[in-house]
């Protein structure tokens, strides 16, 4: 009984190490193909479209609503202390430091990450990747690298859009609906939100999440078992692992950036 549990744990650990190792080698292979991506611009544009533009809708709508809800909830708490003037600060700091990168990252993993895994997995299972290799076209450079670069560029932009629209949503609720003075809303926010300490750190987070989520997505797709079941599992893994990675890294990054 105990022996089999231990053996199971051992196998799981070895498997994890094995996958981690392959994942890192894979990242190295991708990075070698990255410079070429900028030369072959049309490929990158196409991927920016399917990774970035297609995720824009869900990001924009979620951002707006998250901002509006934050404003509403924040207002009812702050008004008890007569501090409703700080509503802008509350919303801006929550969005810029945490919610923007994290929620945009989670949504991005669900929308673009899963699509990337499924697409690459299907290309693998229909022998398209093998076919490319035999046509002397390296799929790492032709297929994986442009998708990776597109993901890394897209997420910071999406996170910024998420935060900006969230703040606009909060402004709409705070000023138009709840009647907070517009001047106070913006000036308080501006005074307490710092460019380098808050905004730039948020952007750094979103870049890190962009790298990690896209990396997981393309790796799972490339490494999947090339059957319909395998692709389905890989897609699920992408979303789950991305979510864990984002939340875990967010804790680490927050401790590093704002803890010291």
């Amino acid at each position: 009984m105990i022996e089999s549990v231990l053996r199971g744990l051992g196998r799981w650990g070895l498997d994890l190490l094995w996958r981690l190792g392959r994942g890192h080698l894979f990242l190295w292979e991708i990075l070698k193909g990255v410079p070429e991506t900028f030369i072959r611009f049309p490929l990158l544009i196409k991927q920016l479209y399917s990774v970035g533009v297609l995720s824009l809708m869900i990001i924009a709508v979620s951002g707006l609503f998250v901002g509006m809800v934050l404003a509403l909830q924040g207002y009812y708490t702050l008004v008890d202390f007569g501090a409703e003037d700080s509503l802008g600060v509350l919303v801006a700091l929550s969005l810029v430091r945490e919610l923007g990168p994290v929620v945009a990252g989670l949504l991005f993993a669900g929308r673009a990450g899963s699509a990337l895994t499924a697409e690459i997995g299907l290309m693998k299972s229909t022998e398209q990747l093998s076919g490319m290799e035999m046509m002397a076209v390296d799929p790492m450079r032709r297929v994986i690298a442009p998708r990776f670069v597109a993901g890394v560029i897209s997420l910071p932009l999406l996170a910024a859009i998420f935060s900006a629209l969230g703040i606009i949503g909060a402004y709409l609720v705070g000023h138009v609906q709840l009647g907070i003075d517009a001047g106070i809303f913006w000036s308080q926010m501006q005074m307490k939100t710092d460019w380098s300490a808050d905004v730039v750190n948020g952007i750094i987070k979103s870049v890190v999440f962009g790298v990690v989520v896209t990396w997981i997505a393309v790796f799972e797709g490339y490494d999947c078992v090339p059957t319909s079941e395998g692709v389905g599992r890989a897609t699920t893994r992408t979303v789950v692992h991305s979510a864990f990675a984002i939340l875990g890294l967010d804790f680490v990054l927050t401790a590093l950036m704002f803890g010291g």
Binding site: V53, I161, I167
Partner: peptide, 23 residues
């Protein structure tokens, strides 16, 4: 569309810089 996406992202960053924070 990709151009518009990049412009929107940049505009959002600009807003975070100028309107939201103290840059």
């Amino acid at each position: 569309l990709v151009g518009l996406f990049v412009v929107a992202g940049m505009a959002a960053l600009l807003m975070l810089a100028m309107k939201v924070s103290n840059l």
